[in-house]
């Protein structure tokens, strides 16, 4: 996949959103899209970036960071979301602790790689089953505000809230017509 300058600008806007939301701790497991965001997280320089070995572990690190008084976000692919259910339920939902999830939404019609599709089909049903509110990015609107609103929603609902990063942010139109 070719990650274009347009994709990079979207990544920058998302990171501006993390900054504006006063997120301080960013845990992550990358895929290609998340990797682009992490490059911008590193350039920004003020976040405590914590690459973790497994997504559910990152859920725990974020939980601890919020207990300690810092805003926290977990950046991961929907594969990681699907494997993190227990952590989200037994930490954030049980203890009513907010968490910002930035999740690359692979396997949608804009991202028709055959091995992503089973995850794409099941991502929103899984979130609904877990009772985790979620929103889909809209590349035509202010992405920075979309990150802030999702964090606000997480805080006000005292639990996780997910912003699903859609293919139109990162997949060049020339790659997936």
């Amino acid at each position: 996949m070719v990650l274009t300058e347009r994709a990079r600008e979207h990544a920058r806007a998302l990171v501006r959103g993390l900054k504006a939301a006063r997120i301080e701790v960013v845990a992550s497991v990358p895929d290609q899209w998340i990797g682009l965001i992490l490059e911008e997280v590193a350039k920004e320089g003020s976040f405590r970036s914590v690459p973790v070995a497994r997504e559910e572990e990152g859920i725990g690190v974020c939980f601890g960071a919020v207990l300690g008084g810092k805003g926290a976000a977990m950046l991961m692919q929907n594969a990681g979301l699907l494997s993190s259910g227990t952590g989200l339920v037994t930490l954030h939902l049980l203890h009513q602790v907010p968490l910002l999830l930035l999740v690359s939404y692979r396997g949608t019609p804009g991202d028709p790689l055959f091995y992503h599709i089973p995850k794409g089909v099941r991502t929103e049903p899984a979130l609904r089953a877990l009772g985790i509110p979620y929103f889909l990015t809209d590349a035509g609107k202010d992405l920075t505000a979309q990150v802030c609103r999702t964090w606000t929603y997480a805080r006000e609902s005292a639990g996780p809230a997910a912003l699903l990063l859609t293919a139109d942010l990162f997949a060049g139109e020339d790659v997936y017509p």
Partner: peptide, 22 residues
């Protein structure tokens, strides 16, 4: 003290998050 109730395997990640925040 913070007591985990139902999150097996998470005490070290949670403790790490607290340590980074504090």
């Amino acid at each position: 003290n913070f007591y985990l109730a139902d999150s097996m395997g998470q005490a070290i990640p949670v403790g790490l998050g607290v340590a980074l925040a504090q």
